[in-house]
């Protein structure tokens, strides 16, 4: 085992996959000579050269499109979009092209590419650098969307995404790049589908993905002190969603909180709770609760920003509400 930060785990996955297959290339703004805004590709330019670690101009839609075109003829591009806000510029090529080419070609052309992008609030980055657009991608047929919560998944899911034949959007998080975890040293893969029970419990299920898993874990620790046994479920993949694992957890605990960092409308929580109602409504002992951001553009001011996005305490309070304790 080696303690790796999230960004180091991503770099290791890049390095191994590029060494394994000459058709794997990396593309993005500042990923080469500069080593990547979050260092996730540092050192790769020197090792693999400018033709495989490609510094792009600031043209998100078209460099993503170039990656898609390359993937159609057998390349395996890993595209970094520096912030998910910028992915909005590339929605045409991601949603109209990558997600639809296999289907509208009758399965004859594939787009095996990976798009990595951090989606979340960091520290006072204000409205245009704090978007969380998971809900937009999870509503698009033809994409896979995954949200690694830590270095093990960041490494193992990137490796799987490179080898998978579908377009995969990996949503990372600016506040997780320095998060550390013991990562096994030998090569391994983590599946792109399947929710994971990351903490077992009996009384309530706290569902998160990406950064909000950590809010759920913190809330579960506080609940334990209150004598409440909370189960924490990491969705891991937002498309497709593992409804089976969610259902089995709810049938055990009968109570649920869904925590998302995004705004609530038409969001992850809305989708998950709808699925729960459809799959196991009668297993519920109380109303589900969503914990989410305020429905505002993220403010710059630190106090306002803190008020706008959910915290572990919000998840804890939500759990108390579900449990009928407040």
């Amino acid at each position: 085992m080696a303690v790796l930060a999230y960004w180091e785990a991503i770099r290791r996955a890049h390095d191994e996959e590029m060494a394994n297959d000459p058709l794997v290339i990396a593309m993005g703004e500042d990923i080469g000579v500069a080593g990547g805004t979050y260092k996730a590709t540092s050192g790769l330019y020197d090792k693999y050269g400018a033709e495989r670690v490609i510094d792009t101009p600031i043209s998100e839609n078209s460099y993503t499109g170039i990656g898609i075109g390359a993937s159609m003829v057998g390349m395996r591009p890993i595209i970094e979009i520096m912030s998910i806000n910028f992915a909005l510029l590339a929605l045409d090529t991601i949603v109209n092209a990558a997600a639809k080419i296999r289907y509208m070609s009758g399965g004859r052309v594939h787009c095996p590419l990976v798009i990595r992008t951090p989606g979340g609030t960091a520290h006072q980055l204000a409205a245009q650098h704090s978007a969380r657009l998971a809900r937009m991608f999870m509503s698009t047929s033809g994409l896979r969307v995954v949200t690694p919560r830590g270095p093990i998944d960041a490494y193992g899911m990137l490796k799987s995404a490179v080898r998978c034949n579908d377009p995969v959007v990996i949503i990372e998080h600016e506040r997780m790049y320095n998060l550390k975890e013991d990562v096994p040293e030998g090569e391994f893969f983590r599946p792109l589908e399947g929710a994971e029970i990351v903490r077992k419990g009996e009384d309530i299920t706290l569902i998160g993905y990406n950064f909000s898993v950590h809010l759920c874990l913190e809330a579960a620790q506080r609940l334990e002190k209150d004598g409440v046994s909370a189960e924490v479920l990491d969705l891991r993949a937002l498309k497709p969603i593992d409804r089976e694992t969610i259902r089995r957890s709810i049938e055990k605990t009968h109570r649920v909180v869904v925590a998302e960092e995004d705004e609530a409308p038409v969001g992850v929580g809305a989708e998950i709770i709808t699925g729960i109602i459809e799959d196991c409504f009668f297993a519920l002992d109380s109303q589900p609760v969503r914990i989410h951001a305020a429905d505002v553009p993220v403010p710059y001011n630190a106090h306002l920003e803190k008020a706008a996005i959910p915290s572990a305490d919000d998840v804890y309070q939500g759990a108390l509400k579900v449990l009928g304790k407040i």
Binding site: G65, I68, V73, A97
Partner: peptide, 12 residues
Amino acid sequence: QPFPLAAGLALG
């Protein structure tokens, strides 16, 4: 949309 896709085919 085909402009960048074409450049990608060429890159491949």
